[in-house]
Amino acid sequence: MTLLLDIVTTAAILFIVSAGLLAIFGVLKIVNFAHGAWLTVGAYCAVVAGGLGLNPWLALPLAFAAGAVLGGVTERLIVRPLYARPLDAILATWGLGIVIGQLVTLWFGRDVQFTESLLPGTIHVLGTTYSLYRIFALGAAVVIGLGFAFLLEGTRLGLSARAIIMNEALARALGLDTARIRLVTFMIGTGLTALAGVLLTPLTSVDPTMGVAWLIGSFMLVMVAGSSFGALAVACLLFGGAQVLVSTFISPILGGITVAVLCALVLRISSKGFARV
């Protein structure tokens, strides 16, 4: 039973962490390699909120706003000139990640920061005691997933974004302000990533390089998922599940590289990954 819970909650956490990256890659076809830096920024918003004596939950909207604003500036200054050069965009955002990491270090220092736990304690589910926060994370992942489904299916922005995914030239010809939609998408993606950073604070240490460890995993998952949130959920469940199974029954060390290796193999077999699912 614990195994099942481990699998779904691991998948949920992977989904939360990757969702922002997917939003950007799906619409903009740009890989934001500063993704890890946004997770860090989000987590430090929790530190700042704690420092100001705010309720720890208030860090969530704070991080979303900070992430989105920072994302807006980034899109305008760094990403926009590079839409035609996707590989260069990877490099430029990686460089930006270094810069953000060093700025956080200069500002807050290298030390591990203390953050208040959002939901301590355990809960009895399915006949076992389990971390309450991980169960909450499962709920958060579902909310984020449904939120995106609504955003894409039910709003004008989502419609425009889908139009751009399918055929950008046509979308522009139809009078859509593609530049603005890109900007908004990027901001939503980075805002969401910063929010995910706050959600990570009860699970990991908060320090200037905390985000990097999550970058490769989420990058690989997004490559497999393409532009579909459904595919991302499937990928997280499948590969997160594989990670837990490998860690449990073979070796946690191999478990650590399971996601990356399996995603690479899946892409080798089908270059579109799960996007066609």
């Binding site: 481990d6 460890a213 860690s247 449990t248 946690p252 478990g255 650590g256």
Partner: peptide, 20 residues
């Protein structure tokens, strides 16, 4: 006796083993 890579962030499986 279990190990995770230095940059590993997910101890879930190990903790479940510990509890069991």
């Amino acid at each position: 006796e279990e190990y995770l890579p230095m940059d590993g962030t997910d101890w879930t499986a190990i903790i479940s083993k510990l509890k069991a």
